[in-house]
Computed example of a mutant assay.
Amino acid sequence: MTRIQLDTQPDKYLISIDRSAVDRQWLVQLIERLRLEELAGQFNFGEDVEALGEQIKADWWAKNKSRFINE
């Protein structure tokens, strides 16, 4: 048996994770991430919001690039 297993039922997915595979903190963080993804999926972001997000990322990268890449 694998350490992480996915079972499919008619109305849900069941994920089984061997306790020795991950620690509790990692699992809690994964569940929080899944909840955030679910909430984000419920919003209808328009193209304007996506363009703003891309501009914010580009600006951040321009300001912080030197911290990660030595030129």
Results as ranks from 00 to 15, higher is better:
A40N: 07
R33N: 03
I4Q: 04
F45E: 03
L6P: 01
D11E: 08
A58L: 09
R33C: 02
E47Y: 00
R67Q: 05
M1P: 07
L39K: 06
T2A: 12
S66V: 03
R33H: 03
Q55N: 03
F45N: 02
Q5W: 13
L27K: 04
K63A: 15
K12T: 00
K65W: 14
D11S: 14
A21Q: 12
E47C: 03
I17M: 03
R24A: 11
E71T: 10
A58H: 02
R33S: 04
R35S: 08
T8P: 00
D59K: 04
A58F: 02
V28A: 13
I69Q: 08
F43P: 00
E38D: 06
S16R: 15
E38V: 01
Q25G: 07
W61L: 15
P10W: 07
E38G: 02
Q29I: 05
S66G: 04
G53S: 07
S16Y: 11
W26V: 15
S16E: 09
L52S: 10
Q55Y: 01
I4E: 01
E47M: 10
L34I: 11
W26C: 15
E32L: 09
I69K: 06
E47K: 14
M1Y: 11
L39R: 12
Q42Y: 05
V28L: 12
E47T: 09
L52K: 14
Q9P: 01
E37G: 05
S16I: 13
R67K: 13
R35V: 08
V49P: 00
T2M: 09
L52G: 06
E37D: 09
N64A: 10
D59V: 05
V28N: 12
Q42N: 12
K65N: 10
D11Q: 12
Q55V: 03
N64F: 08
L14C: 07
N44E: 07
Q55L: 07
E71K: 12
A62R: 10
E71I: 10
E54H: 04
K65F: 15
V49E: 14
R3Y: 15
L14P: 00
E38I: 02
I31R: 05
D48P: 01
A58E: 12
D48H: 06
I69H: 04
Q5E: 08
G46Y: 04
I17V: 11
D48M: 04
K57A: 14
M1G: 11
I31N: 07
W61D: 13
D48K: 08
R67G: 00
K63W: 05
L36S: 06
N44C: 03
